[in-house]
């Protein structure tokens, strides 16, 4: 059930899921694990329970005809609630919407009718033997946190990308970097300037001092210099 490969062979553990499009573009998806998904399901369950309760109360007034309508309502809410929301609302049921999740195909494309129906019909396999025990175990054991329905339908529950807020950089005169940097290194410098507010002053100095020697400045001025380079990297805004 669990696999534990030798440590040296495997790359650092990460929660990202890479998809390469035919055009050679790497999409970075972030599969969502058991806990946010369980909460999203709980929200959906509560909403459905509420709707069903209200529906029963109202339809009970109609007698036998109402009973028929109530069973239709139960059918719709049990089998079609998730499918309709997922297909028509960009892979988001209300619970997933609240938890910032959405369902997509394995290759990053929006979920369609076939996949959504499959994953929601197979929910009844996940429920076995009781209270989603199989689904929970499958979700914990899969590297992309898929339950059995997801594996069968080829779908993935991911975190939605929220639009990033405009970064607030520390004030400094823009400087040109004295050496060439890879994208990752440029991001780290920008991150240092952006996250200055979250770091304590001694920690900032400590971090900046690491780069004092390559920058050829005294350790005390390194922070200001890095902020300047970050401002230069950001360009005019």
């Amino acid at each position: 059930m669990f696999s534990s490969p030798p440590r040296h062979a495997c790359p650092p553990l990460d929660t990202r899921y890479q998809v390469e499009t035919p055009e050679g573009i790497d999409l970075q998806l972030r599969p969502a694990g058991l806990i946010p998904r369980a909460l999203a399901f709980a929200i959906d369950l509560a909403i459905r329970g509420l709707l069903l309760g209200l529906g029963y109360l109202l339809l009970a007034l109609l007698g036998q005809f109402g009973m028929g309508l109530a069973s239709i309502l139960t059918f719709l809410l049990t089998w079609w609630y998730m499918v309709l929301f997922e297909v028509l609302n960009q892979g988001r049921s209300p619970g997933k919407q609240m938890m910032g999740l959405r369902v997509i195909h394995d290759d990053g494309t929006p979920i369609g009718w076939a996949a959504s129906l499959t994953r929601n019909l197979l929910r009844f396999v996940d429920i076995l033997p009781f209270a989603y025990a199989l689904g929970i175990l499958s979700c914990l054991c899969h590297s992309s946190f898929k339950r059995l329905g997801d594996i069968a339908a080829g779908t993935l529950v991911v975190y939605r990308d929220q639009p990033p807020a405009a970064p607030q950089l520390a004030d400094a005169a823009p400087l040109r970097a004295p050496f060439a940097m890879s994208l990752n290194e440029q991001r780290a410098l920008l991150g240092f300037a952006e996250r200055a507010g979250q770091l304590s002053a001694p920690r900032r100095q400590e971090l900046a001092a690491i780069l004092a020697e390559p920058l050829q400045v005294p350790a005390a001025e390194a922070e200001q210099r890095i902020n300047g380079i970050a401002r230069g990297l950001l360009g005019p805004t």
């Binding site: 669990f2 696999s3 534990s4 490969p5 440590r7 495997c10 650092p12 553990l13 990460d14 929660t15 990202r16 972030r30 599969p31 969502a32 694990g33 058991l34 806990i35 946010p36 938890m99 914990l140 054991c141 590297s143 946190f145 975190y159």
Partner: peptide, 28 residues
């Protein structure tokens, strides 16, 4: 030497990483 990718994550993603970490050393 860290065997996980270190970057700031949301709390949910951090827990997902925990699941992966436990999965890697599950036997022990």
């Amino acid at each position: 030497d860290a065997s996980v990718a270190i970057r700031p994550r949301s709390a949910w993603e951090a827990m997902d990483l925990g699941v992966l970490l436990a999965r890697r050393h599950a036997g022990l």
